[in-house]
Amino acid sequence: MEFFLQLLINGLSIGLLYGLSALGFVMIFKASSVLNFAHGQLLAMGAFFFLVLVSWLKIPIVVAFLITLAGSFVLGFAVERIFLRPLIGESLIFVIMLTVGLASMFKGLLLFFFGGNLQTYPDFLPAGLALQIGTIYVPPVYVASSLLGGVFLLLFGLFFKYSPQGIFMRSVADNQTAAMSLGVHVKKVFALSWAIAALVAGMSGIVLGIINGINVHEISSIGLKVFPVVILGGLDSIGGAIIGGIIIGLLETFTSGYISPSLRDVIPYIVLVVILLIKPYGLFGLVEIERV
């Protein structure tokens, strides 16, 4: 029983991390229908940027966190402006391959500057954040990441539901021509969605770094695990990303706990294929409203 509970807690927290990582991915897809294969590298960029600020430049944590968010925002904006904008209207394979190319470029750069070794942040989370539920111990990083995840989820939910820019972003995702006819600046919306997505990715990268340490290969592979997560949740649903993440996280920990640790890394993809075959729009994706 205790084993089960420990697995449950682990699964939940890992799942929340997956969900958080998938948030930015969903955002890009929602606004511009781009499948971003460079998402893992965006996560890694944020994590390493934070590392530079905290460990090398010794900037206070909160300031460093804010600077990282701002830097990621600018990075996302620049990526859209330089690489993605010329491809608006091009066919799917070019857009996909462009992000694949970007992934390899970013990864190469990160390896060049930081190498492939594991690096860690200085320990800065207060130990008081840890939770003791009965016999189960929840480490402070998990509590902190859950809190951060919850806050950001709420913020983004509100942003999309109520703010004008959020509504414009949804309108572009819905019907680009109609949005254009009303004067919505579609390119600005694309740029903004990339910027926000990179910001979320940067933040998730930091949290990942706190928990697992920072390693380029490790974080990049999480970028690919985003796919089962978002397909499960529905490619365009923010809440779905979180729930999909949690389901995948639980699945992974329980598979490795009860069946076989080696199955852990492939089980999400098996689920992915099954989901695609029976319910391609995912659990929470928008089913196309088709009427003429």
Binding site: P164, I167, F168, R170, S171, D174, N175, T177, A178, A179, L182, G183, V184, H185, L286, I289
Partner: peptide
């Protein structure tokens, strides 16, 4: 061509984009 996944009021709000 309304925005199908937005409510009526949100649709109207997009009209203020300019």
């Amino acid at each position: 061509q309304p925005f199908k996944y937005l409510t009526i009021e949100e649709n109207l709000k997009v009209g203020t984009a300019t």
